[in-house]
């Protein structure tokens, strides 16, 4: 699971008011190369929750993203590379996503998060 996917998933348990962002528990992280696509990254930057990405990538062991970012930084190739790495190249292969409100764990196995709910959570 890439951190771009993490940036859109939320906990869907009944009664949870604020299920975003899910915390990450790392078992194993893998990296896969993705060619730099500056236009795509610019579009994404406008839409994603950057703070959540910074925290998530730190949890995954990558701390090079600046804490704060603004659109003008998208002109810098150095920043684009870091963004590309954090957003698309890091994968949570094993571990869990954790509901920020209830602490319920959604397991991630072979890169696939299981967000299915138990009967009493729907």
């Amino acid at each position: 699971m890439r951190l771009l996917t993490h940036n859109m998933l939320a906990s869907n348990i009944k009664g949870v008011a604020n299920g975003f962002p899910l915390k990450i528990e790392v078992g194993q992280v893998v990296e896969k190369h993705v060619d730099l696509n500056p236009e795509f990254l610019k579009n994404m930057f406008a839409k994603l929750d950057y703070k959540v990405l910074v925290e998530a990538s730190k949890t995954m062991g990558y701390a090079d993203l600046p804490e704060q970012a603004e659109p003008s930084m998208l002109e810098s190739e150095d920043f684009l590379r870091k963004l590309n790495h954090a957003l698309l190249e890091l994968h949570l292969e094993e571990g869990a996503l954790v509901c920020p409100e209830t602490g319920r764990k959604f397991p991630v196995n072979k890169g696939i998060p299981n967000m299915l709910l138990h009967e009493d959570e729907v």
Binding site: N7, L9, A10, N12, K47, G111, I112, N114, M115, L117
Partner: peptide, 29 residues
């Protein structure tokens, strides 16, 4: 599906969930 992606050598992500109770953040898709 994941094996199919490997076979084609393309990247695709997967999430196991019931579409009816999917919770979502933002406008990324």
């Amino acid at each position: 599906a994941r094996d199919n992606a490997d076979e084609l050598e393309v990247d695709m992500e997967f999430v196991q969930c019931d579409i009816r109770n999917l919770s979502w953040n933002g406008q990324i898709i």
